Amino acid sequence: MSWNDFHQRQSAIATVLGNARQNPDQALDLVPAPFTDTTELLRALQYKWTQQLTGRIDVALAETDDAADGDRIQAVTEAWRRTAEANPALRDLLDRHQANPVLRHDAAREHRMLALATGLAEPAEPDAEIARVGKAFLQLIRATPTESRKSCLLSLR
């Protein structure tokens, strides 16, 4: 891939994410060049998410390993939440298309990464079990309110 190709792809992704902020239901109706179809575009969007998430998890774990009272589960949880907060249109778009077969394999890979990064699973365990643990962990992340959401909920009472 040339630099020109890279920049075209990044520009197209930015356009799609801009469209997703405006009209999430129709964000993938038009697939911008250089992408040829929705499958290729979804893979690029998932790759962007994975890059962002992996980077934040790596930093969080490095900081946790340096701390005397480091908590890997908390570090990964906060890394996932910060990634989602920094990329709301991207996360929403991927969530809207999570049933697409193209994203299933990538979701399982993310689940395995989360389970291993938290230490909730070991690399020697079967991939399916690691993915199951990571999926359950992600469901807990999404179901548990953050401090800011807790504050909002309490102020509504």
Results as ranks from 00 to 15, higher is better:
N87A: 13
T54H: 07
W49P: 00
C152V: 14
V31W: 05
L30F: 13
A115W: 00
L156I: 07
N4C: 02
L140N: 06
N87M: 02
A108Y: 03
Q139S: 15
W80V: 06
L53A: 11
L41G: 04
L90P: 00
W49M: 10
L116E: 00
A33K: 15
A143S: 12
A86W: 05
T15D: 08
S2I: 02
K48Y: 12
A99M: 11
L154N: 07
K135Y: 11
M113I: 03
A20I: 02
Q22G: 04
R21Y: 03
R91L: 11
H105I: 10
A33T: 15
T50G: 12
H7L: 15
E129G: 06
P126G: 04
L154M: 10
S148T: 13
E40L: 07
R9L: 03
L114E: 01
T38N: 14
P32N: 10
W3S: 08
E122P: 02
S155A: 12
A121N: 00
I73K: 11
R149P: 00
A79V: 07
R109C: 02
L45K: 11
S151F: 10
A44W: 08
L154P: 01
A67F: 03
P88D: 04
E63N: 08
D5T: 15
A143M: 07
R149N: 03
Q98P: 02
E63K: 08
C152G: 06
Q22C: 09
S151V: 09
R132M: 07
L53E: 06
T39L: 12
I130H: 03
E85A: 15
V59Q: 08
R43Q: 13
A12H: 01
L90H: 01
A27L: 04
T144K: 05
G55M: 05
D25F: 08
L41C: 11
V31G: 03
P34T: 10
L154Q: 11
R104K: 14
D66P: 00
L41I: 13
P126E: 12
H111F: 10
L45E: 06
L61T: 01
H111D: 06
D58H: 05
E78C: 08
A89L: 12
I141C: 13
R43W: 02
R132Q: 13
A62F: 09
D66Q: 13
D69Y: 09
D5W: 10
L114Q: 01
E147I: 13
L30P: 04
D92Q: 14
E147Y: 09
A121Q: 01
R142M: 12
S148A: 14
P24H: 10
